[in-house]
């Protein structure tokens, strides 16, 4: 098992390199650079823009820019954000934390809803329930995230139960730690719910399909023949088998959150990595974008690793030595 972990961590380095390279190419692909907007400002002379371009190294070919970035990155310097006139590392840390909180809460909520509901629906074997769930899943999947997010905004504005976007109240600085925590939860509720709404159907449907398949496996049939209670069969036996694809989904769900949360973050003013990354891409703030994507890559690799470890734990056969 440790071998897997170590091998994966070693494999992370080339992945990160490839992601950084990809990001540079990506920005290269889209025309314009950070100073394009400024260069159109009639009160700014082309000479000034040229001087700034030179200062920021934007006049260099992309591979040279990448080389410069890389030589700094290996020394632990993630670069300089043109958009905020400061080091990337300091700016991104806050956003990383905020996205992680949102993503974790969203995932947690989604799983907390999907797992029991999935098991219960298979156990109940009711046609009505089944239809209701399929309809519900369709609705959740079919409505775009921004409509859910807008709905959440309207709910907040209409009822006053939740804050309208944002992550902390203006008074936050005066709060005690406990109050700050409650304030965070209060702000977190809606965005996390929206994230969960879009994630939960995936888990729910996958789980239900997995359970349905597992329930006809021979060993389960055998157990049933021995008189094991249905509920016990489901939870102790079938769930074990059905959890496998769920874990894989969970692994990449963690990684996919970056693009998944972008709209939620934007509409509900949750300053996270997703909106930061899109903003950086649109503004061509290269170093910041690369840092965001690197974070996403790490998150994804970690999610996948975690999923694989859990997979191995859930299904001992996978741990067996590879076929040679």
């Amino acid at each position: 098992m440790w071998r897997i972990v170590i091998r994966r961590l070693l494999a992370l380095a080339p992945l990160l390199l490839a992601v950084a390279l990809g990001a540079f190419l990506l920005v290269r692909l889209a025309p314009g650079d950070f100073l394009s907007e400024l260069s159109l400002n009639p009160q700014v002379s082309p000479e000034t823009v040229a001087a700034m371009r030179e200062r920021y190294g934007l006049d260099l070919p992309w591979y040279e820019q990448f080389g410069r970035w890389l030589s700094r990155a290996v020394r632990g310097d993630l670069g300089y954000s043109l958009a905020c006139h400061c080091a990337v590392a300091g700016q991104i840390a806050v956003h990383v934390f905020q996205t992680t909180v949102l993503a974790a809460a969203g995932l947690g909520l989604a799983l907390a809803a999907a797992l029991p509901l999935g098991v219960w629906s298979v156990w109940k074997r009711s046609r009505m329930l089944d239809r209701a769930i399929t309809a519900g899943v369709s609705i959740l999947l079919a409505w775009p995230t921004f409509l859910w997010a807008l709905g959440a905004l309207l709910l907040a504005a209409g009822t006053g139960w939740f804050p309208i976007g944002g992550i902390s109240s203006i008074e936050n600085e005066k709060y005690s730690t406990a109050e700050k925590f409650i304030d965070l939860l209060h702000h977190l509720a809606l965005p996390a719910a929206v994230v969960a709404l879009k994630q939960a159907p995936h888990y729910l449907q996958t789980l239900r399909a997995g359970l349905a398949e597992a329930m006809v496996e021979d060993h389960i049939r055998a157990a049933r023949a021995r008189g094991v209670a249905e509920s016990r069969l489901l939870v102790r036996h079938a769930l074990r088998n059905a959890i496998n694809p769920l874990l894989t989904m969970f692994g990449q769900g963690v990684g996919a959150l970056l693009s998944g949360t972008f709209i939620v973050e934007t509409v509900l003013s949750w300053p996270g990595i997703g909106s930061l990354a899109v903003g950086s891409l649109l503004a061509r703030d290269l170093d910041m974008l690369v840092a965001c994507l690197l974070y996403a890559a790490i998150l994804l690799a970690m999610g996948n690793l975690l999923a694989d470890l859990m997979l191995a734990a859930a299904d001992p056969r996978i741990r067996r030595p590879q076929r040679g």
Partner: peptide, 13 residues
């Protein structure tokens, strides 16, 4: 992982 880590979304933009 590379495809997932460079989210499609950004590539498409």
């Amino acid at each position: 992982e590379l495809f997932l880590a460079l989210p499609a979304f950004y590539l498409i933009i």
